[in-house]
């Protein structure tokens, strides 16, 4: 498949054949009949990692590399359960995690969720936090 260009946007109108739900249904299957008959679940209305990669291509093609990068991280995060996503976010707050904990988080992202781009972001944070004294101190000190 050739890379997407700006002309392919919006995908929902110009390239619906590329769009699938995480459950593998084509986007055209998301009809009122399907809703009423109870064939669709909430899972069918989530975005798939493949679609996020397509949108990343579009963002790249439109000269927005950072936006594309965010979509790539997002594509990785689709595999992470909601509660874990929030827990990881909380772990990145200032002085919330030790350096070891962040290193462990990055490893988990890489191994459990195959999320190297997210892992890189966490490793970068760990490095900066260490330099800026934003890692959690090993022992509690609440004063």
């Amino acid at each position: 498949m050739t890379a997407l260009t700006r002309d392919d946007y919006p995908l929902s109108i110009n390239r619906p054949e590329l769009l699938h739900t995480p459950t593998g249904k084509p986007i055209t299957a998301l009809t009122m009949d399907a809703v009423v008959s109870g064939e669709l679940s909430a899972e069918d209305l989530r975005i798939s990692p493949e679609t996020l990669q397509l949108q990343a291509e579009l963002a790249e093609a439109s000269g927005r590399p950072q936006l594309a990068g965010n979509f790539r991280r997002a594509a990785e995060m689709t595999a992470i359960p909601d509660a874990d996503v929030l827990a990881m976010y909380n772990a990145l707050r200032p002085r919330a995690s030790t350096g070891a904990a962040l290193a462990e988080l990055a490893d988990r992202l890489e191994t459990t969720y195959s999320a190297p781009v997210c892992a890189a972001l966490v490793r970068e944070a760990a490095e900066v936090y260490e330099r800026r004294d934003l890692l959690a101190r090993p022992t509690g000190d609440d004063d």
Partner: peptide
Amino acid sequence: LRQRVSGDLLQT
């Protein structure tokens, strides 16, 4: 809701 599946609204 279907738009969420397409991701088109995520663009700038």
